[in-house]
Amino acid sequence: MSLYVRYFVAIVIMALVTYIPRALPLTLFTKQIKSRFVKSFLFYVPYAVLASLTFPSIFYCTQNIYAAIVGTVVALLLAFFEKSLVIVAAASVLAMFLVNLL
């Protein structure tokens, strides 16, 4: 299979496994989940996913690990003070860019 065909098939699979969890409950259920465990489990999923996606990968997002550490610290600080997503991202990019220039 050529590379782009592989990519395309993978993207279609991604689209399906994104659409199905969104559309299925809308069409099938009229009552809410009763299990408190399942509800709680699903409540924590996004946080656990994003944490696992971010750490430790963030430290390898550029060749200079010190630049990545500075970018991470800037992001953590601004996120702690509840700045918007765009501000946090832009400041962290800028910080890493400046360290790379040194």
């Binding site: 971010t54 963030i58 970018g71 996120a79 946090v88 991202a89």
Partner: peptide, 9 residues
């Protein structure tokens, strides 16, 4: 780093 920073945010 932008997407990771957004996830942190």
């Amino acid at each position: 780093i932008a997407l990771y920073a957004m996830f942190i945010a």
